[in-house]
């Protein structure tokens, strides 16, 4: 249901349920959720490794120093750039598929066949 109601509101068919984009294949949605969380854990581990390397360069570290370490603006920008590259690699199959769709006239023609 995608029409606005008289109050101008629009809700999923069952607002009490989470959005489901893979009808009959809920595991696909869950899998993508798990991959999303996993990239967060990779990012956290990479940040921790980066902290270790930066502190090592300053002459050494222990757990307390690692926990207390916060990247300065330059280090944070480097981490964010590394993170974007990691995300880009993990989700490259999706990005590539979008690039392909943009150049696929056959698929585009099927998208014009709407249920209007």
């Amino acid at each position: 249901m995608t029409e606005l109601d008289p109050e101008g509101l629009v809700f999923r068919d069952d607002p009490s349920k989470r959005s489901s984009f893979f009808a009959g294949q809920a595991d696909v949605g869950r899998l993508l959720g798990m991959i999303t969380a996993l990239t967060g854990e990779i990012a956290m581990l990479r940040a921790r490794l980066d902290t270790h390397e930066r502190l090592a360069a300053e002459g050494g570290f222990d757990r307390t120093k690692v926990e207390a370490y916060r990247p300065d603006a330059t280090a944070l920008a480097e981490r964010m750039a590394d993170d974007q590259a990691m995300i880009g690699r993990v989700f490259k199959p999706l990005s590539d598929e979008l690039d392909r769709l943009l150049e696929d006239p056959v698929v585009q023609k099927t998208l014009l066949e709407t249920d209007r």
Binding site: G40, A43, A47, E67, R70, L76, M80, Q84
Partner: peptide, 13 residues
Amino acid sequence: HDEAARFAHVVGL
């Protein structure tokens, strides 16, 4: 340290 790293990643994602 680790929570901040996860937050930064969510922003990146």
